[in-house]
Design a binder for these strands. Structure first.
Lengths: 241, 241
DNA sequence: AAGTGGTCTAGACCACTAA
DNA sequence: TAGTGGTCTAGACCACTTC
């Protein structure tokens, strides 16, 4: 647990500790929902001070990987609705209400990956993908039509599943051992095509908010590509700068 | 610099220090670009430890209020292009390039505030606002049409100004002593009206990304309301989750 | 009462910058 | 060489939760 500080590749100790602890999440040594050892235990085990462990744990808390509760302990974050709502789902009713959307799966297919999909998900030439097509409703009204693409190799049991639950990040975690760590979104305005318009109860050509998301696992490998077409008549995408 | 820790209104010491230092920015005791005292000097002056001052300064750095440079010192952040580009301007070329937009002011008016404007900017019944209408271009092509609304009382010298510079946050800071601290954005999809379409070189009815921003000063009072209509044919709004 | 995270302190040493 | 921020340590006490 020591390192010469000169040279161009200096990594602070708290960062090394953070990386080691994230590795435990990747390896599944610490599972979602479980309590991890206390700061002092980790400090003793790793041979660093408690303050250094704290700095690593604080960083992981900021990444939403851990949840700390005074008096109780530190826990591995769960992909529960409240967390998704806070971290990943930014569509909010115009009156400020936050609701978790319901989903209706329209289609699910296993197919060879297109060139675009291979590039986005880092797949080889012969790899396949799952494509999930669903409609999401907020307060009973269909608002989002979205297509999700997953690398087939990481979701091998998916064919056997009867239904796909509403919270897919909980599915990835519980059934496939994949934790989504980060995601990048690109937003554009687009026009509704006939099929999407029919789904969302609007007219073809109506403007839609188009959200393209690439989500990565804890090891920063791409896991999910998603394009969402959103009717923003009564909802908006909110962001603090 | 001490406080009983029981009771419901406990505020950590580093937070109190942070608030005191932000007050110096509000009061203008520390001006943008200037170097502030070292951690040890502040600690001695405020009667707290250097570690507590550091935690306050780190928080302010995270808020983009300060810039720290190892070996040089800690400086009050400037509303310079690079900072705006990083913190406030999220429209990026599809190839990933970040450019600072040029602006062309189409109109500037002083008028009584509408009911909506009064509500958004926290104004009284007889207050006036400035309305600035401009077109912004990226790499020579007009991409954004936006309307900015400012409380007239906070921008009294604006009538005398010949031109309005491209970087309005630098203007607010340098000419009116107002530092924008935070902003909230609401994104929707909308259709171009005839005037906006003519400005942006598209067709009326084309989908546009509509960004509504409310920016607040360091003391959390609203300062600027802005609605931007963006053509996203070759650009997108990017965000990390 | 015991164990946890949250705060605060004091001091050491390293790395970077400028004079 | 002096001064700055960046990292790391060791230890104290407080607040919250559970038993």
């Amino acid at each position: 647990m020591s390192q010469t500080k000169q040279g161009l590749a200096f990594t602070p100790l708290y960062r090394q500790v953070r990386d080691m602890l994230v590795q435990r999440l990747i390896d599944g040594a610490w599972t979602p929902g479980s309590m991890i050892p206390s700061e002092f235990q980790l400090a003793a085990e790793l041979g660093v001070s408690q303050g250094t462990v704290r700095k690593a744990l604080d960083a992981m808390t900021a990444e939403h990987l851990l949840v700390r509760r005074q008096g109780r302990g530190t826990f591995v974050a769960l992909p529960e609705e409240s967390r998704i709502l806070f971290q990943f789902f930014r569509l909010i009713a115009d009156d400020g209400t936050r609701i978790f959307p319901e989903s209706r799966v329209m289609d699910r297919q296993l197919a060879p990956a297109s060139a675009d999909e291979r590039a986005l998900l880092g797949l080889g030439i012969d790899e396949a993908v799952w494509r999930i097509d669903r409609v999401r409703s907020l307060g009973g009204t269909p608002v989002i039509s979205e297509q999700i693409t997953l690398p087939a190799i990481r979701f091998e049991g998916l064919a056997a599943m009867e239904t796909i639950p509403n919270n897919v990040y909980a599915l990835y975690s519980e059934h496939f051992g994949i934790t989504i760590g980060k995601a990048t979104e690109k937003l554009k305005a687009g026009a509704a095509d006939a099929r999407t318009a029919a789904r969302l109860g609007c007219t073809a050509g109506d403007p839609l908010l188009v959200i393209e998301r690439l989500a990565t696992a804890l090891d920063d490998t791409p896991v999910e590509h998603r394009v969402s077409y959103c009717r923003t008549a009564n909802f908006h995408y909110r962001l603090d700068l």
